[in-house]
Design a protein around this nucleic acid. Sequence first.
DNA 1: GTGAAAGCGCTAACAG
DNA 2: CTGTTAGCGCTTTCAC
Lengths: 344, 344
Amino acid sequence: MPRPRSRLRLADVAERAGVSLTTASRALAGRDGVREEVAERVRRISQELGYVANPHARTLAGGTASTVGLIVHQIDDPYFSEIAGGVIQRAGEQNLIVQICHSGRDPQNELRQVRHLIAQRVGVVIIAGSGYVDPRMEAESKAELSAFQNSGGRLTVIGRHFLGADAVRPDNKAGAETVTGHLLSLGHRRIAVAAGDARLSTVADRLAGVAAALERAGLPAAGLPVVHTDFTRGGGRDAAERILRDHPDTTAIVALNDAMAIGVLSALREHGVPVPHRMSVAGFNDISIAADLAPGLTTVRLPLAEMGRQALCLALMPRASRPRRKSTGHALVVRDSTGPAPSV
Amino acid sequence: MPRPRSRLRLADVAERAGVSLTTASRALAGRDGVREEVAERVRRISQELGYVANPHARTLAGGTASTVGLIVHQIDDPYFSEIAGGVIQRAGEQNLIVQICHSGRDPQNELRQVRHLIAQRVGVVIIAGSGYVDPRMEAESKAELSAFQNSGGRLTVIGRHFLGADAVRPDNKAGAETVTGHLLSLGHRRIAVAAGDARLSTVADRLAGVAAALERAGLPAAGLPVVHTDFTRGGGRDAAERILRDHPDTTAIVALNDAMAIGVLSALREHGVPVPHRMSVAGFNDISIAADLAPGLTTVRLPLAEMGRQALCLALMPRASRPRRKSTGHALVVRDSTGPAPSV
DNA sequence: GTGAAAGCGCTAACAG
DNA sequence: CTGTTAGCGCTTTCAC
């Protein structure tokens, strides 16, 4: 692509305003060291001319990189697109631009994206989505990201245990405890879990919440059937099949995210298992479609878009001496996919 | 944000390779004017060192801006997130980065985003989503985008009539004709349409398809009840309410996109109207959740992710003397939300 | 074929 | 408070 037509430069504004480049630069950046009256004039002229700074020149000269890099598993997964929506909305208010990359939940690929973003000199990196329990899988990314932070880059993670970075932390354990408690209070005693890849920290955390609820109720968490498959709709289908086959007396399935819950519902429908009369199903996240499934999905609501906003807000604040943690809170949303345990 | 630590520069690579900056630059850009043997050595050294060019310096110096700007209505709308997924995937293969902005379907805001993207010196702009029938609403954006193209920028639109830019064109009219034909063949004669804002070109095109199918069947398209509301789930709900109230003998509703169809289904469920026994419902787009609704949504499939890919592919080819058009094709996906017309 | 030198548009020392 | 002077890292004439 050939070069764009030459646009207005700061020099043009400065000339029109009868000041030097420096003064114009300072005035527009809102830095002080300029008489307010002069600054005002420069700003007005810049406005009139429709001047917009060249971000590349600005970044190159050592200023602020006004882009934020967002790494998600897949943008067409509602969990991530809702979070991304929040990030983009917040960015728009600040005239920042958001660059989105896919990690595909693959540490190697994520590393590539992290490097790419850093090479692009973004000022902010936000990583959304579960990490792995085993720190070794992410060691390289971490190293790269630490260096990024040490050189002044801002990093925020959403739903990931990354000590040393500001974090938005979904209420994974507590949420899972709440939804399991809901099932228990409906009289369910034979609960099974459709879980994602056991190596994912989110899966581990939510699983811990399920176990905690069981224990609190004085039930043995040890015998809890947990089926680990993909953390996706397809995984949910597989999990449901296996639960139906291996644990036929199950009366409730906790899916560790809504995508899996959707898969579970789909499999149960195929098998003619009525929900919730014969089997209750609960999800996690409350992606917006959850309300429109039939039956409506009982799930744990996380404020997804808000989480995206928050993540960017954190990143936009100067780095604190100790990483900040924002917990999301959660809310149980009871719809029609859960009901009293069938009295066998 | 302070400046990032200084990274490897081209000068470092050049020095290591014992050549000048110029030669190194040429070698890495794959331009000729360098002995192949030397070029090879430079590339190898650059590789070993892990050198990545500073894109800002490159862009500033007048080279290629290796970012693509994607404007969507809202990223958390599945129609757009699936398209975006395709764009991002293709971009990843090329080591390009995708910047995403929301237009909110507001021409003024879209204009802002277009300007912002152009000011960022992106090399490619992709605009996804319907435009308005009235060209005046988009005149400003068009002017800006034409200038962008004339200065060498590449533009592709998805689902928008923008003469003068490469375009991916969803099969709106034909698709609507197909799905309406499906309903007619099931014996439906009292069909109503849940349509979005009448000023949207996509709505107009799909509506034309519905009318065409009716006429082809020898039915008067004139009396067709068309309810114009928002092109969203909420709009679908409103439309269904109105159809139920004003045209109680309707046996089938064509929603002009899946989001509206979801709203229609939701309203019908609330009113206790059985689908498809008392009312058939069809959508448009086949967003991935369509298969998981209950009843499964009969809809017109558009290859959403593929459309995103295609759009970027078009943009990556050199501009043709005449704008290229890629039609998407479409497929009717019959699920459980449509059935024979009730024999009253 | 190869290199030296001049910018791209901006910010940031450093002087006044 | 304001202006002058160097670069930021790269591409690109223009000489050799």
